[in-house]
Design a protein around this nucleic acid. Sequence first.
DNA 1: GGCTAACTGAGAGCGATTCTCGTTACAACT
DNA 2: AGTTGTAACGAGAATCGCTCTCAGTTAGCC
Lengths: 145, 145
Amino acid sequence: MDVDLHETAAIRLRNHEQRYTANRRAIVEVLAAAERPLTVPEVLERGDRMPQSSAYRNMALLEAAGLVHRILGGDEYARYELDEDLTDHHHHHLICSTCGAIEDVTLPGALEASIESALNRAARRRGFAGEQHRVDLVGVCARCR
Amino acid sequence: MDVDLHETAAIRLRNHEQRYTANRRAIVEVLAAAERPLTVPEVLERGDRMPQSSAYRNMALLEAAGLVHRILGGDEYARYELDEDLTDHHHHHLICSTCGAIEDVTLPGALEASIESALNRAARRRGFAGEQHRVDLVGVCARCR
DNA sequence: GGCTAACTGAGAGCGATTCTCGTTACAACT
DNA sequence: AGTTGTAACGAGAATCGCTCTCAGTTAGCC
């Protein structure tokens, strides 16, 4: 799976007429190593002195190419995670309403399927084209309690 | 139900040692009349020339008192809706990834229950105290297509 | 080896939200 | 009816995550 990670990334970017440069590869590597969605500052800390503007620009590019997804949580920071196709790990989030931290969590497959179909049925009735569902639990994390 | 709306609001604010002033009442009325979550600029448009700073301050206060909830959607605006206790209407959202608009949608009660219990089970395992679940469908709305 | 377009980095700029602060309204107690 | 303490108000300044600008660099292609 890790063998394909960078190859898949390169191909998807190529399809958008963009290159898989060192900076973009660095971002993908940091996100792949993390076990939860990261903010841009967090990516910068863990990376190799990348300029802030490049990080934001490339994150937006990666999102446009479908390689990463932006998650808006409890605080003012947007968090990013790799697309599930790249990680083979469908999951949802526990969002702390106190500190804004986000953890990953998985649900039983049967439940996933019923959520998916119920949401799509409701959406179609409104002329809404569903792309992804978002099931999050908002609460207070262990550290904040 | 509408009879109790302002009374409930006044009581909850009182419990937080805050008053139910004209500005706050105006915000609650605008939100109650809307059929979807509104941004602060939208509340200002529909209200009676309330200053921006008062709208933001009071919105934050109402949120602290549990009367309204903030929803972070696709665009850069936070949207607010009345607490479900005040509207008797548990629901979820369709979020347009193109224009950021948010619509309300309801799910079957049985599905709600299984989502709730599955999420809480997963959360408890992490020492996470769940408060509310958030089930949203992200896609493209009828107008943007 | 030159052409073209994508990419980079530093800093300025943007815009939704929050803070500051002097003023005003309200409630309780004389 | 005055007084007093505290909450709320409004206008504008400030904050801060994020985006844009632009001159210089690099990668892919003939």
